[in-house]
Amino acid sequence: MTDTSTTSSTSSPLVEIRNLSFARGNRMIFDGIDMDIPRGKITAIMGPSGTGKTTLLRLIGGQIKPLTGTIKVDGIEVTELSRSALFQLRKRMGMLFQNGALLTDMNVYDNIAFPIREHTRLSEKMIRTLVTMKLQVVGLRGARDLMPSELSGGMARRVAMARAIALDPMMMMYDEPFTGQDPISMGVLVRLIRELNDALGLSSIVVSHDIEEASSIADNIYLLSGGKVVAHGSSEALHNSGSEWAQQFLKGLPDGPVPFHYPANDYAEDLLSTGNSK
């Protein structure tokens, strides 16, 4: 499926974002960003919390519309698609939500079978084979009959991964896959993302602020801040870059271009004022 679905030449980027702007209320989340997500590689998008990394994934998935700019996925302009065309495109995208977003009223098996049952008319026997294969990939074949509430956070994410690849998509999007994980399950997830990408010929986008894990698997890194792309390149290139911002983020310095203090009026003045908050 991955082979037939790629319509344009393999050299062009899978996702092509040009001059993208998006605002929530009065706050600009993105201010004219350009981005290229290459095929067959893992691209990490990093930045401090609140820079709209998750929003970016939603924009690519067409769940929200940008203010201006274009987003092309596999040569298709996402922002102008009709609802049904968008759904056709989404069948070729897999997305892993932050906490897995498993359907809580079904067990693990039914969760993975869910998209297959909804979109195909395969026999139960075929579905069983498919689901078993997907579960084997994420190493949870034994957890087939558990309910989502009985899974640990890491296991839930692995089940969600199995579900996301159930329809053999061309790309995977991971939303903060490492947040709140212990080192072991973090390691498992890192390995899975890499293996899935290489074994299934996917293109992956990983949104994260876990620098070490993300940069260990990413072929390409985009650093976002203040609605702009502040740096991009391979992980090594960024570590050696002169960008002050990249240095602060990658090394986790408390103060720098991203200030420690939330913008406020003068400290001394604030202390001396009579307490009237005006």
């Binding site: 939603r58 769940q63 759904f87 995208m93 997305m95 939500f97 977003a101 359907l103 809580t104 869910f114």
Partner: peptide, 21 residues
């Protein structure tokens, strides 16, 4: 709860209309 745990979003991303389903 399905909305706050992103289950509805996840369905949309699986190309399944959560309103209908």
């Amino acid at each position: 709860l399905m909305k706050s745990t992103e289950q509805l979003s996840a369905m949309e991303m699986m190309a399944i209309d959560p309103i209908r389903r």
